[in-house]
Write a protein that binds this DNA or RNA. Structure first.
Lengths: 199, 199
DNA sequence: AACTTTATATTGACACTGTCTATATAATTG
DNA sequence: CAATTATATAGACAGTGTCAATATAAAGTT
C-alpha cells in the first residue's frame, strides 16, 4: 500500500483552500474583502503562509480571475457545441453566458476587468481571453454571414455592448430597484434589438 | 474697502485644495493613490484636517466623480446645442464626448463606475447622471426617429456599447499596444457601424 | 469689549492592511 | 542518517481609514 495520507505537505493543499476561501470572500464582501490576512485567518494559517502559494495579493486575485475566464470559456464552448450548425443565435449564447455570470456573481465579474487587482499581462489569462474572443468571432461569422462590417468590428461592438450593459447595471444604473431611470429595458431586449438590426 | 483677505478660515479654501490635489493624484496614480493621508500631506495639512470638508475617503471620491459627470454633461450640452436641428449624428456627440474623456482620463472614467469608491445613491450624482441620460435620449429620438425599438432600449444599448468599448479598452483589451487581439477596430468604427445599422 | 459658540486644524491612538525578514519545522532527496 | 527543499510561524515596518481629545481661529451674541 502506498501512502494513505494524500497531503503531501504540512497543511495539505493549502493553495486550494486559500483559493476557495478567497473566492467565497470575493462573492460576499467584494474584492476589497479579499485580503491576504483575512484569507489566511479563514484558512487557519498564519498571515505569512500564503506567500508560498501566491506571491502576493495580486497573484491570488489573478488566479481567481483566470479561473472565472476558464469557466466562461467552458460554458460558451459547451453551449456552442450543443447548438445546430449555422444557427442564427450563436452570438446570443455568448451574451447570455456573460450576462448570467455577471448578474449572478457581480463581484467576480467586476474583478475580471480590474486592472489594478488583476495582472492582465498574465500569459495564461491572455490566452483564455483570446479563446473567448475567438468563440465570439465564430458566433459572429456563422450567425451573420456576409455582413458589410468586418468580423472584428462586429465582435468588438457586440462584446462591448454586452459588457457595457452588465457593467452599467452593476454600477446601479438601469437597475429595476433604482428608479432614477425608469423604463430601463432588460438585457434580452438589448440583445434582441441587436439581433434584429442584423437580420 | 472690504476685507482684503478673502480666506475666511484657518487655511483658506482647503476644501478646494483637497479636491484639486485628489484629482491630480487620481490622474497620476489611480484611485488607489487617493488616500486621505496622502492628499492631506500634499495639501500641507495634517491627516485629520480633511474630515471637516469630506466626511471620509468615499465622500471625497464621490465629489470628484460628481464633478466629472458635470463636466460630461456640460460638454455634451454645448456640442448638442451647436449642432443643426434634427441632424442625424446626435448620438455621435454623446459617444465622442464619452470616449474622448475615457481615453484622456482613464482613472477618472474608471472612478465614475466604481461602486465601492463612489456613492451612487448620492442624490446630486443621480441627478447629473439622469440629465446625461436624457441628453442621450434626445439624441436618440431626434437622430433616428420612427425606429421599431423603443427609446429606452435604444438609448441603453447605445450607452452600453460606448461604455463597454471604453471600459474594455481601459482593461487592456483591444489595445493597439496589446497584440493579443489583433485588428481591433477603433472607436469610430464601432460607432460608424452602429449608425449604419440604423440608417 | 467680553463671552459663547461654531468651524477648523492638530495630535495621538486603534485596528487594520501588504510585504519583508528571520526562524522553525515538516517533507523530500541524496 | 544527513542535507536540502518546501512550507509555516512570528515579528517588524510603513502604510491605511477613522475616531477621540485637544487646541486654535473665526464668527456670533450679549
Amino acid at each position: 500500500m502506498a501512502k494513505s495520507k494524500p497531503t503531501p505537505f504540512h497543511h495539505g493543499d493549502l493553495k486550494r483552500v486559500l483559493f476557495d476561501v478567497a473566492l467565497s470572500r470575493l462573492d460576499e464582501h467584494g474584492a476589497g474583502g479579499v485580503t491576504i490576512r483575512a484569507v489566511a485567518k479563514a484558512a487557519g494559517v498564519s498571515h505569512g503562509a500564503p506567500v508560498n502559494h501566491y506571491r502576493d495579493r495580486r497573484a491570488l486575485l489573478t488566479a481567481i480571475a483566470k479561473a472565472q475566464f476558464d469557466t466562461l470559456l467552458n460554458e460558451i464552448d459547451t453551449k456552442l457545441a450543443a447548438i445546430d450548425h449555422d444557427h442564427g443565435s450563436r452570438i446570443e449564447i455568448f451574451a447570455n453566458v456573460m450576462m448570467d455570470f455577471g448578474f449572478r456573481y457581480p463581484h467576480r465579474y467586476r474583478l475580471l476587468w480590474s486592472a489594478d487587482l488583476v495582472d492582465h499581462a498574465d500569459a495564461e489569462l491572455l490566452s483564455v481571453m483570446d479563446k473567448i474572443y475567438d468563440q465570439l468571432c465564430t458566433g459572429v461569422t456563422k450567425g451573420a454571414p456576409g455582413r458589410e462590417f468586418d468580423k472584428d468590428t462586429y465582435a468588438v461592438a457586440f462584446w462591448a455592448m454586452v459588457h457595457g450593459y452588465v457593467d452599467l447595471r452593476l454600477s446601479g444604473m438601469f437597475e429595476p430597484l433604482n428608479d432614477s431611470i425608469s423604463g430601463a429595458p432588460r438585457g434580452d431586449a438589448i440583445i434582441d434589438m441587436f439581433k434584429k438590426l442584423l437580420a
